[in-house]
Design a protein around this nucleic acid. Structure first.
Lengths: 189, 189, 189, 189
DNA sequence: TATGAATGAGCCTTCATTCAT
DNA sequence: CATGAATGAAGGCTCATTCAT
């Protein structure tokens, strides 16, 4: 009964997706440290199901953000191909990255926390976003728009940190500061 | 027996100091959310002693950092009086602030976490550091060195966030990014 | 596997019952303020199991006594239907109520303590026992056997208080005093 | 220096009185289980002073109420000497006892709790109030106003229990129930 | 004698994690 | 595979009690 297997796989996939959607929602409400049980309840599954699919919290966090990270990474080459200076492309890419971060409560803090167990999210960023950012940075350096000496990783980490918002430091402030930081990277004439 | 009272007060003061030293050390190791018990053990006292001296965790955190915050605030007017541009003074003050933050693991994260209960540390910063920073910013604006539109509070929050270090993003990186951010604040000619 | 679910539910029900039995026993020994841990140990379960089934102490206390309270309430109409005067029915109902109270060390005290958190036990009594007692009292008043002016609630509180036993004031004394109180309620010819 | 000793003794006595006054006030506010520290603070002394004067909580509770208990006991013979029936004297004495109990939050509950450690308060009542009550009861029996078979101790315990008040069972209700109980003790014609 | 800082046992509560069904 | 009941470690906080001064 090969169909039966397919049905079962499809069901399993649906369960996984449901968990991811629930986790995403709960992370926005409560941050990435939310109790596993809350996520299970929101997803309408047992906690065991979450542990089966995502043995560690970091696995879950990573899976939740993987798609958006991939999307963000894929944006870089497209921006470079568009007309305009490489620095403009970098700026627009940073906008997208910031947009991603500020809409996810606690993710920035999680990234910056050095929390072991979130290392694979860290690794995911290194593997996908950093290379994407690097192409943009390299293009800027080649165009003599920014000084060399700023690595993609450090820049992204800095941007990530700037996106940790709070009561008196909101998303607009974060965007403003990121823009200011990029401006500071610019090669002066 | 006035001496006896003095002896007891001195002993109590020593205990208090020991707790503060232990807390400071534990905060570096584990962050400001470290279990009270750990701090008590490090200080060689019972948990009750901690609660007696610092009824809430925020009281303890605040006490640990108050002296350094005050010192940092007092630096601002002195830097302004020295020869050199206001922007140079701002840069040097930021250096001191960064130095303060990066040597305290987790403080930046704590400040940025919006954690209720850390509100009075927040308040302490607002009350002492923000005015200090404001005098520097105002001087820079007056000297037409930076554009208006950046508030002291937001700038400090941004600097604070940039000082959340971790593996692959160390103190040197933080300083570099802060310098870059300040450079981005500069009025272009 | 519908049986599997049934098995699990049955097991959970057995656990719940075990907790209730343990709690009942511990309440007799130590009163309703006994540590949750003691109850968990007596039941042979972890504290988490108690909290899962009974989020608050009041939930546990209420559950322990609910069955007996219901039984006691259901007795009132049956006694009224039996031959004999309404006052005799009231007396016999009070006997049953006293029997219930004196076998539960500390319940009377708990009811009389005004302890917040035991409000729903209080409410349970108001909702079930007070109406039961009221029907008896009303019948007595209608039969001109007792003077109006005594409310069911106050009478039950008084009976409850009289059932707080101790050394030198045992169950027999409590019953004697309750009988005397009821006698005092009687309309004199 | 015999005067010096006298001065010191007088000072010690004043301290003791202050503690008793503070304890009395705190007991009314918080019940007899109030933290020792609260009493010490209200008295303006250190906790050690309380422990020195009253090694156990029961010692303190007992001392607080001793004077009032003595006063209440002394009332019995005076009431008997006044014109009127012995039962009227008993009623008036019960009124005084109730008045004493209901104005002391938690004392009734404490008396009824069987709490070991409050045994000496218990003993104090046995030694002073029970004999006083006994003379009244005996006089009533002699006058054929109440049936024998009710002991002074049990009656007082019952009255004490009836004085455990709460939100919906106030002092007036307690007095009413005590009067009803006494009425129930009365010999019927 | 008086003080009150210090101690630490004890209770409460949450939640990550396991595992029998 | 999914479930969710059960577990118990972990951390918070209070307060009775001791003892050096």
């Amino acid at each position: 009964m090969p169909e039966a297997v397919g049905v079962r796989q499809a069901q399993a996939q649906r369960t996984r997706s449901g968990v991811l959607a629930a986790a995403s929602a709960v992370f926005v409400d409560q941050g990435v440290q939310a109790p596993i049980r809350d996520i299970a309840e929101r997803a309408g599954v047992g906690v065991g199901t979450i542990y089966r699919n995502f043995p560690t919290r970091a696995d879950l966090v990573t899976a939740v953000y993987r798609h958006q990270i991939d999307t963000c990474a894929a944006l870089a080459p497209r921006l470079l191909e568009e007309p305009g200076s490489p620095f403009a492309a970098l700026t627009r890419w940073a906008d997208a990255f910031v947009e991603f971060l500020v809409t996810k409560h606690g993710l920035g803090a999680a990234l910056g926390s050095g929390d072991p167990g979130l290392e694979n999210l860290h690794a995911l960023m290194l593997d996908t976003l950093v290379p994407a950012c690097e192409t943009l940075l390299d293009a800027c350096v080649d165009a003599d728009e920014i000084s060399p000496g700023i690595t993609a990783y450090v820049l992204m980490r800095a941007i990530g940190n700037l996106c940790i918002t709070g009561p008196d430091y909101d998303q607009a402030d974060a965007k403003h500061m990121v823009a200011t930081l990029l401006d500071g990277c610019r090669r002066k004439a």
